[in-house]
Amino acid sequence: MPPVKVLEDIYWVGAVDWNIRNFHGFTYTTHRGTTYNAYLILDEKIALVDTVYGPFAGEMMERIKEVVDPAKIDYIIANHVETDHSGAIAEVLKHASRAKVIGTARCKAGLEKHYFGNWDFQVVKTGDELNLGSRTLKFIEAPMLHWPDSMFTYIEKDALLLPNDAFGQHLASSGRFDDEVDEAVLMAEAAKYYANILWPFSTLILRKIEEIQKLGLKINMIAPSHGVIWRKDPMKIVQAYISWAKGEAKRKVLVVYDTMWGSTEKMAKAMVEGLRSEGVEVMLFRLPCSDRSDVVKELLDARGLVVGSGTINNGILPTVAPFLEDLVGLKPRGKVAAAFGSYGWGGGAVKHIEESLTKAGMKLVLPGLSVNWVPNKEELQRSFEFGKEFAKKL
């Protein structure tokens, strides 16, 4: 794939990773691959905004060479330290030995610790600008979106926002723009990206969007560092982020469980029918048959969550534990929840689930439901009624 013209004298020179299927230490499945986006800006001074994951440095350098001699690059803008965006900086500097690296103070510290390079570095903060000639880059610090070092770069001339990991998606495609891919797939991957990476920072996201609005920055295009570029309707993803960050949801419930010998599963299916009888949209997931990061994505626009497990060693099945740990870390906003499960000679699973749900910031709206051994007809009816009652609590 050759470099792609984004705007006049601005080129995408990143890389498409068609084959990656796991991200962030196997906590996030990337069924559709990803991209590492880097943007080359030609002016009186030449700037490269972000780089790519180290193994793709050669691809990026070949694309840069198709546009300009890399030795002419004056600046490397490092919006984020994480290695999927900074991994090729050292390779670029081999070709562009006079280039200055630009980033926040935390970015400088992070890059030095990652790469041990004695680079010419300029620290910038919100409001600082870098004039390239006909274009001026404006920098906006964005700490914890999603690392402490994160920064946005804005080009007023083009109303172009380069926000690194914000507004991105893990999506490999032959198209580089939102109007070149399936919109339903695009928004699904954007939602999954938000839910699994940015959800814990929702309050900060709302503040940052408000800050940008107060700065009066016009935005005609958003070019993130993963996935496609938003040019058709960049405000679509901004409005989606506002909705997700506020915890807006619909009458939708996830029933998530695992079962040892089928008893908890019988309860789960009865609850699904109870929920459906009240006109609620329901999705049923068995762990680990269902991918955790996909389940988290579906929780983004759901109002309620019911989690179940059989009991083992006075606690939950080990297959359920990682999902609950995800919830504690992500802290989904505005969700109501409940727990259920079966047990043999001793209980414990329901209590453990309730503790985790509470720790994740969810509101328990029903006492947990436990069944000894295999649920009989009456207990299955109780499970059905449990679903009905939970639906009324939404």
Rank of each mutant, 00 (worst) to 15 (best):
residue 39 Y to Q: 09
residue 156 E to F: 13
residue 59 E to A: 12
residue 130 L to F: 11
residue 88 A to W: 14
residue 167 F to H: 02
residue 138 K to E: 13
residue 61 M to N: 11
residue 28 Y to R: 06
residue 277 S to M: 06
residue 17 D to N: 10
residue 278 E to V: 11
residue 331 K to V: 10
residue 24 H to S: 14
residue 6 V to C: 05
residue 219 I to L: 13
residue 34 T to Y: 04
residue 204 L to W: 00
residue 134 S to W: 03
residue 316 I to V: 12
residue 314 N to F: 07
residue 228 V to M: 08
residue 391 A to F: 03
residue 39 Y to E: 06
residue 82 E to I: 15
residue 331 K to I: 07
residue 305 L to M: 15
residue 194 Y to V: 14
residue 238 V to L: 11
residue 303 R to V: 01
residue 330 L to P: 06
residue 242 I to E: 06
residue 288 P to R: 04
residue 18 W to V: 14
residue 97 S to Y: 09
residue 287 L to I: 08
residue 110 G to E: 12
residue 352 H to Q: 03
residue 104 T to M: 09
residue 9 D to N: 15
residue 264 T to C: 02
residue 28 Y to E: 05
residue 135 R to P: 04
residue 378 E to D: 04
residue 244 W to G: 07
residue 120 D to Y: 03
residue 26 F to K: 15
residue 236 K to V: 00
residue 279 G to F: 03
residue 3 P to Y: 09
residue 147 W to Q: 05
residue 67 V to D: 02
residue 40 L to K: 00
residue 392 K to Q: 04
residue 16 V to G: 11
residue 193 Y to N: 09
residue 345 W to Y: 10
residue 55 P to A: 11
residue 290 S to L: 03
residue 216 G to T: 06
residue 192 K to E: 05
residue 154 Y to H: 11
residue 353 I to S: 02
residue 135 R to W: 02
residue 47 A to E: 00
residue 355 E to H: 07
residue 210 E to Q: 13
residue 70 P to W: 11
residue 66 E to H: 12
residue 240 A to P: 06
residue 273 E to D: 13
residue 139 F to P: 10
residue 310 G to R: 04
residue 375 P to T: 07
residue 124 V to D: 04
residue 175 G to N: 13
residue 95 H to C: 13
residue 115 Y to V: 08
residue 210 E to D: 12
residue 236 K to S: 02
residue 315 G to L: 09
residue 126 T to D: 08
residue 23 F to C: 08
residue 139 F to R: 02
residue 206 L to I: 05
residue 366 L to K: 15
residue 370 S to L: 14
residue 244 W to N: 07
residue 278 E to K: 06
residue 142 A to W: 00
residue 118 N to D: 01
residue 302 A to D: 11
residue 39 Y to T: 06
residue 211 E to G: 01
residue 12 W to K: 14
residue 33 G to N: 08
residue 204 L to R: 10
residue 16 V to K: 01
residue 9 D to F: 13
residue 110 G to M: 13
residue 249 A to G: 07
residue 5 K to R: 14
residue 279 G to W: 02
residue 34 T to D: 04
residue 15 A to G: 03
residue 211 E to K: 12
residue 289 C to V: 01
residue 67 V to Q: 06
residue 354 E to I: 01
residue 55 P to R: 12
residue 203 T to Y: 09
residue 204 L to A: 13
residue 332 P to I: 14
residue 78 A to Q: 07
residue 234 P to T: 13
residue 325 E to I: 00
residue 223 A to D: 10
residue 275 L to Y: 06
residue 282 V to T: 14
residue 360 A to P: 00
residue 176 R to T: 01
residue 363 K to E: 15
residue 95 H to Y: 04
residue 167 F to C: 08
residue 119 W to E: 13
residue 176 R to A: 03
residue 295 V to D: 01
residue 247 G to H: 10
residue 161 L to F: 06
residue 115 Y to S: 04
residue 348 G to C: 05
residue 134 S to F: 00
residue 103 G to C: 07
residue 100 K to F: 05
residue 335 K to G: 03
residue 119 W to G: 01
residue 153 T to Y: 11
residue 61 M to A: 12
residue 363 K to Q: 12
residue 142 A to P: 01
residue 288 P to I: 02
residue 169 Q to G: 08
residue 269 K to H: 04
residue 155 I to H: 09
residue 137 L to K: 05
